[in-house]
Structures are given as structure tokens and as C-alpha cells.
Design a protein around this nucleic acid. Structure first.
Lengths: 194, 194, 194, 194
DNA sequence: GATGAATGAGCGTTCATTCAT
DNA sequence: GATGAATGAACGCTCATTCAT
């Protein structure tokens, strides 16, 4: 399996660094190869084409993240707790790897529609995690019984995404993880005075 | 003033159509010129360069939208009503112009960081509209008194954006405007049962 | 006659200034028109095309110069005196008009072969002046009897031209006219000790 | 070293031919690549840009020429002999390569000021050769003791250049090398009868 | 005569991908 | 498996010239 050979990860990690430091459109294959310490041609022994590097990058990082999250979520009882854990892990993952944050929030979005459709495919795993939390919360009576799962999921995703993107655009100047709890509260309670 | 001449709008409208139908990276200047019914060189009598077309496009469409919205908002009393009006107008604008929806939600995001920074500049006007609604709601006692304006704004923006993008990615198959009210309710009440 | 209308000279003078200040390749017709205070299209009422402006420029400036020189040369007796007068007038003309010097020595040479052939056509008048001085000197016994007129003319032209070009390239920092006499002596006596 | 690879010379030689046959402004990179038998992109593995081809062309041809000349000059005793050798070699180099003659005398002069400044830089090596001959001649008593080296150099350069340019403009119809001796005599003796 | 908006042909350069070694 | 030299398609922009007013 190619994915288990050291050069596979080497190239993906190089791609994250090169894209974060140079921007998507200045991340030429030759630069990634140089950063990875391999020849240009070697890239094509491990990836079908440049797009394949980016999809694989997303799959590797996001796949590992979702797996880890599902594990941890089992330890939590209420939907509210699960939601908080998810937001917190999401913010922590991106806080820890500033390169990855830039790549996922800014650079990878410059890819064309095709690539983004494939990225969405990967995101479906994440989506199911959110849906499960929401369904669980609705069925247990924690959340409103007529909660529209799809809309609620879009609110949760959209809010987290906007929060992280704003943080990246502000050059990661403040502590993102501190926002996990207030964001969770906001998502659960909404704006209204209670 | 160049902006008042018919060819200015002609070119911008052509750009929206060409970008929506061909994608950002396949929207060559010559294609836009052809669609607008002018010569390639004519473009440069009205715009500094290709990027300038895109910025102007965004300014024209968004600027007009924000203006119209501010006018209409004056007629509403409560913050909740204003929020609903804003979401509804936002969804209606993009529902009415399917090309514009594709361009703002998918294609324009492929632009480089520079262009996106300029787009964000334009968006600041929208941001103020949201902030004003939130502040008003908080001060009037409608919304929670310790509402974090910045976070709430990110939730509102993020949710609307995610909702529209999902709709566009699903090829605009369902009625987006029907979602305005449920989205507003969700933003105000959150997920929790009350 | 178009040449007698004020706009004809106006445009030529504008061309000299624009070319000297912006360089040959940055001397667009629209810039020349603006400098001349006329509309772009007006240029084409007085000149066939852009090349025609440059040829006319050269004809006007050089034609007037040659005429004036021929007049003055009549007052001189010896070929040596005539040679000195010619060199002196040549250096003075270009010393007085720094823009013209830049245009003839540097910028106009960037024109294509066709234009330069036409410029050479204009220069033939000058050439005859030199040839006449040389023939007169040879026949009067002042100059060597087996002087190769063509070679001698090339030496004189070449030396004057190189001297002026070097002066222009050195940003006209020293007094060119002071070189007229030493140059004439050098051309007459050569390098050898006598 | 890129300069030692065969394609480096191949491209330079192709540039000489293409420029000579099509003119400076019609010498597109794609034409040069085709003539050299390489792909367009290959040019950019050996040269920074189009201008770099032209500078390198000049450096290669002129650099080699000056080196060869300095070697041969050592075998000559008197300044007069050295001057003759230099003129002869200059005329022979350009006589042997008709394409190169066209390029250096006509086409390369159409380049912009930047390129010509770089060409002048290369010419400084040649300039030193001439200066050395003149100084030697003056110090040995062969040439006039109050010879102005700078002016004399301008005369020699100017005369050679004008002679070659006239020959090229006359489509190289006569034997240029036959003019080496008469030109040398003229430069040493001047016009005057002795 | 004068205007100036409109035209449209033309080209240097980049970079993902290949393939002989 | 690994290399890296070679490939060649693709495009934004300029500016001399025209012509309807």
C-alpha cells in the first residue's frame, strides 16, 4: 500500500507547508517536491496528479480527526456535552497546526468546483457526526422536538467555519479554543433572552 | 462617470453569466467581452484589469443590496423582525439570480487572497447591518444582555452562507426562500427545547 | 499644404518631447496627441501613421539644419574651416535641444529597419554636404589626393555620431561643443605624430 | 553549468538566425525555439527571459571575440600594427557571419534602453583593448603625444561601426575585409595631405 | 476640420505531467 | 523505485488606427 510508505506522508506534509507559506496558486508541484526532498517525478509515483495530493491531504487530516472524535464522543452522555467536545476538538486541531488552518480555511477554497465537490465528499463523515448528535439530542428531549436536523447542522457547521476563518484572517492573534464554550452556548440557546 | 455608461453594467452582467456557466478559471476576458457584445479592448476602457471586473461586480451587486436592505429595515420595529427581513432578502436576492448565486457562493471564492481581501472590504458594510440589529436587540432586552456581538454575527453570517452554499451545491433544487423563517427561528432560539 | 498649418509643427514638437521623456516604446500616439493638445484622431489628419510622424520629425529638424548649414558654409574658404564649422554646428544643434539629442541618438534607433532606411534617405542630404567638403579639400590639395571619399565620409559621420552618443549616454554632463575643434583636428591629422 | 550544455549554444545560434531573417520585433520566442529544435518552455530552462537570450548572445559572441583578439594582439609590436589587426579581425568576424552582422549592426539596436545599457557593459571590454593600443602608441612616440585617448577611441569605434553598418545596409555587396587597411590608414593619418 | 470611443490582433511566460535513463 | 530535463498549451493586456458624430 502506497499510503504506508514514508514518502506518501512526507509529500502530504510538504504540501501543507508549501501551500500555507506560498498560497494555493504559488504551490507548484516542483516546490512541494523540493520541500519533501524528492524529485518532481516521484510525486507521480504516489499521487495520480496534483489534485490528488490535495484530496489525499484532506482525507488524511480529516479522516484521522473524525476517527479520534468519534472515539472521544462515546465518553460523553448529553448532546450538549458532545457538541461542546466537538467544537472544542475542532478548534484545538486547527489551533495546534497553524499551517493546516490556513490551508483548510483559505487556500484550499481556491480550488475549482470539482475539487471542492470531492472535499465535500470527505466532509460527509463529519456531517454524520453532527447529525447523530442532533438526532440524539432531539430524541432525548434535550433539543427541540421539531428541530430541523439539516438546518441545525448547517448552522453548526457554518458558525464553526465562520469563527475559524475570521480567526485565521485575523492572523490567529487571539485564542480560538477559548471560543468553544461561548459558541456552543450560542448554538444551543440562540440570541434570545430567556 | 464610467459606471453610468451602459457598457459598464453590460460587462458586469456578462461576467456574472460567463463565470457562472464556465467557472472562475475558465472565464477568460475574451469570453466576457464576447458575451457583453464588445471587443476585448473595450473591457479595458471600463476596468483596470480582470480583477477589477470581479471587484466591481461584487461592489455593484452587494452595494445595491445593502442599500436597499437598510432602507427596508427602517420599517421594522423589533430586532427579530429585522433579522427575518434580512435573511429573507438575502435568500431572495440569490434565489432570483441563479447565476449570481453560483458566482458568489462558489466561483468568486476561488480568487486569490488579494481579491478576497477586497471582497471582505465590501462585506464590511453588510457586517455593520448585522451588528446594528444585534446591538439593538440586546439593548432593547429582546436578546440576551450578555450576547457576544462578534460571535453572534459570525453565527448569523456563517449560517446564512452555509445554507445558501448547500442550496447552490444541490443545484438550487429546492426553495431557498422558504428556509428564511426557520433559519431565523433557529438563530434566535438555538437548538434547545424551551 | 498641411505642413504649414500650426498643428503640424505642434504635433512634431510634441512627439520630440514625448519620445525624449518616455522613450520610443512608451511614446504612444495618444500621449503625443495629449501633449500636442489635440485628439488622437486629429493626428491622422496630418500624418499617414505613427511612422510618418517620426520621419517627418526627422525631415523637419534635419532639413532645416542642412539648409542653414549650407548657407553658412559658403562663407568659409578652406575645407578644414568648413569641416570645423559643420562639426561645430552639429554639436551646437544637439547641445541646444537636449530632447532632440536624446531622440536622434538613442530613441529613434529603436525603430525598425524600414523606418531607418527612410531616415537614411533624409541623411543623404547631409552626406552630400560632407562629400562636397571632402572633394573640395582633395581637389584643392588640402587633403590627400588619394583620399577615399566614401571611407572618409564614414569616418567623419561615425566619429561625430559616436561622440554625440557617448555624450548623451553620459547624460550630457560635459560641454559637447568644446569637442568640436579637437574632433576636427583628429579627423584631419589622425592619430600619428607628425 | 548551463552555458556548457549543447542547447545553450543551440538556442543562441537559433536566435541569431531568427533575428537576422525576421527582424528584432518579429523574432518571437516560439520562432527561436522552433529554429533551435526545442520546445518553447525549454528556452526558459536556459535563459531567464527573452532579453536574457539577447544579452547572452552578445556576451558569448563578443566575449569570445575580445579574448581571441587580446591573444593575437600580443604578437604584434607597433600600435599601428595592432590597430590594423583589430580592425581586420572585427571586419572578418562580421564578414564570416552575415547573420551576426545584421543582428549586431541593425536589429539589436532596436532593443530598449535597458538592454542597450547591458550591451554597453559588455562593450567596455572592447573599449579597454582600444584604449590600451592608443596609450601604448602615444607612450612609444608612434602617436601624437597630446592624443586625447577618449576622443581617439570614439573616432576608431565610430568609424568601424559606421563602415560596417553601411556595408550591411548595402546588403553586404562588397568585400568588407578589403577596407581594413584603408580604414586603418585613414585613422592614423587623417584626411590631410602630408 | 475635429473628436475620442471602439476595435482586435498579437505574444512572453508558467507549470503540470511525461519518460528515457 | 527514483530522477529531472523536456514539453507545449493557454491567456491577459496594449495600442495604432478607424469612423460615426
Amino acid at each position: 500500500m502506497k499510503k504506508d510508505k514514508p514518502k506518501y506522508r512526507q509529500i502530504i506534509d510538504a504540501a501543507v507547508i508549501v501551500i500555507a507559506e506560498n498560497g494555493y496558486h504559488q504551490a507548484q508541484v516542483s516546490k512541494i517536491a523540493k520541500q519533501a526532498g524528492v524529485a518532481d517525478g516521484t510525486i507521480y509515483l504516489y499521487f495520480k496528479n496534483k489534485e490528488d495530493i490535495l484530496i489525499s491531504l484532506f482525507q488524511e487530516k480529516m479522516g484521522a480527526f473524525i476517527e479520534k472524535m468519534e472515539e472521544k464522543l462515546e465518553g460523553k452522555k448529553s448532546a450538549a456535552e458532545k457538541l461542546l467536545l466537538m467544537i472544542d476538538m475542532h478548534f484545538q486541531m486547527l489551533s495546534k497546526d497553524r499551517h493546516l488552518a490556513i490551508v483548510t480555511q483559505l487556500e484550499l477554497r481556491q480550488s475549482n468546483k470539482d475539487l471542492r465537490l470531492k472535499i465535500n465528499e470527505v466532509l460527509k463523515g463529519y456531517l454524520h457526526v453532527v447529525d447523530n448528535i442532533l438526532i440524539e439530542g432531539r430524541d432525548s428531549g434535550e433539543f427541540s422536538e421539531d428541530l430541523d436536523i439539516r438546518l441545525a447542522r448547517q448552522m453548526i457547521f457554518g458558525t464553526m467555519d465562520e469563527t475559524v476563518t475570521t480567526w485565521v484572517m485575523n492572523e490567529q492573534k487571539y485564542d480560538l479554543t477559548a471560543l468553544a464554550e461561548p459558541v456552543q452556548k450560542l448554538l444551543i440557546n440562540g440570541c434570545e433572552k430567556r
